[in-house]
Amino acid sequence: MKLFKQSAKHSIKFFLNGNQVEGFAEPNLLLSDFLRKEIGATGTHVGCEHGICGACTVKLDGEAIRACLCLAIQVEGRDVVTIEGLADTEGSLGIIQKAFHENFALQCGFCTPGFLTTLDHYLKINPTPTEKELREVYSGNMCRCTGYDEIIRASLEAANELLKIKTLNLK
């Protein structure tokens, strides 16, 4: 295991949304702070810093994790996907984002990055979720504006859309 010197900055090279980036971090710097302050990727939001609200959820090597419970130095050489990486190739809304837009699934939008990354991860494991399953998956994401119904509706719609595309591609 690599040893990092305390209170010194270390170079961290990793992949952010498919692009290799580099930043510098002290060993105690949280991934959430690193992404936001050092890399400038402010799409990931920090709501509680103790792993409960879910706003800072990002994908690390495909797994949904809390960026506030991860150190920057842990992502060296790894793949991080944030909300900024969920748009389609032209930079417009991706399928999940579009479903959230059309179903009024966000109000203030502060918790939204966590919901989007959680869903993006979950639909890869379970492409045909039920409402109940989605609610359970979101038990780690807090939203204070919407009351969740619109989020569930949007998520079901996104799953359907993704399935349709998958079926078309197979044909």
Partner: peptide
């Protein structure tokens, strides 16, 4: 907001 471009 959906693209991560909100400004809080």
């Amino acid at each position: 907001l959906l693209l991560g471009r909100g400004t809080f």
